[in-house]
Amino acid sequence: MFTKLELEKYARTLWWGLSTARTGQFKPGEFVLVRFDLDALPLAETLFDLIIEKGLVPVPRMNLSPNMEVSFYGKGSQEQISAVPAGDAEFTGNLAGLISLIAPASLTHLKGVDPSKIGRAAVARKFLRDIMEQREISGDFGWSLCAWPTKAMADASGLSLDEYAEQIRKACFLADDDPAATWARVFEDAQEVKAWLNGMEIKNLRIESEHTDLIVDPGQDRRWLGVSGHNIPSFEIFLSPDWRGTEGVYFADQPSFRSGNLVRGVRLEFKEGRVVRSEAEEGADFVAKQLGMDEGACRLGEFSLTDRRFSRIDAFMANTLFDENFGGEHGNCHVAVGASYADTYAGDQRELDAAKKAELGFNESALHWDLVNTEKKTVTAELKNGKKVVIYDDGEFKY
């Protein structure tokens, strides 16, 4: 699907993403975890070689196969699925980087598994994510991820495998002579948008489309982030709001695959920051169980907008990495229920402990689930001085 040259370009693009995402400089001999699904082995091998060239130590780890996941979550006892191997915390605490290559061989194999068991496994391992988050704040760790085309994703999206690969090729600029240089230019354009948004004193945001009317409180001491190298591709501009100020209705017209389940037409009604009613055209029971995973699962962790002028993605990809960055005719907005991103705190990251997070309304959860709206929409910012400004309309930022 990809030539040797395209594989090398993809690997160099991921290196740009990783080195951009990490605020500290890499040092020779540091460890970089390469986590991959089996189908992505050609890219994993190319990336392994590049990391060796950079003087770092690649640590390859293959994800569980679909059969392994069915066995683990289906047959595993609560003790088994909650167990964390000795040494994982020490290993995570010494990582300098992580690159994940997403290439699922199946999207539906976990459909018959109790989602609460998947949730318990995520909760048990959340402390590892917390370790990485703290290392990222100190500049000692960075991460990036990408997708590799598989038949499972192509079939779920309604594309042929070649069409799916072409979407990846377009979205990641792999046909360009130097994709990393193209990404650097997108990065600079996004910097301009973020500076414009961060210069506003926004009291709240109102998102209006045919089926959505939602109020979001950006929160105190927040900053807009995006195009940071963390995701390849990524065109979104986002923040983690104060979950307590979420009111109204949000509708995700784009389908979503999660834990083997397909959901369509998710409608969430928020009151005083929490989802008080959820509906779905398909997968309603699964949605309800996800929202009940833990105390923070029914609260908002992220609000995001994508400018259609940045993104070349114009097809449903059955993969959140691409779908949350959909450009298409009207761009997109998405919200995530569950965990917030601590790096959207505008102050000194080192002071953002659990108490400070709670004070500022940063949400805590083992869940982080992106739900995408691609309808034509208007986003209006009410400023603290009472003025109202349209910041986004029909797929474009109005800066």
Rank of each mutant, 00 (worst) to 15 (best):
H109K: 08
H109F: 05
L110R: 04
K111M: 13
V113M: 12
V113L: 09
D114W: 04
D114H: 05
D114V: 01
P115L: 00
K117H: 09
I118M: 15
G119W: 02
R120Q: 14
A121K: 13
A122N: 14
V123Q: 15
V123W: 06
A124P: 14
A124L: 10
R125I: 03
R125T: 10
R125P: 06
L128S: 08
L128F: 09
L128Y: 09
R129S: 15
D130C: 01
D130G: 04
I131V: 08
I131D: 00
I131C: 01
M132S: 09
M132E: 09
E133S: 14
Q134P: 01
Q134D: 08
R135I: 06
E136R: 12
I137E: 07
I137P: 02
I137D: 11
I137F: 09
S138A: 13
S138P: 02
G139Q: 00
G139L: 00
D140K: 12
D140W: 08
D140T: 13
F141M: 03
G142F: 01
W143D: 02
S144C: 10
L145I: 06
W148E: 04
W148T: 03
W148Q: 09
M153I: 06
M153G: 01
M153E: 08
M153L: 11
A154E: 03
A154R: 05
A154L: 05
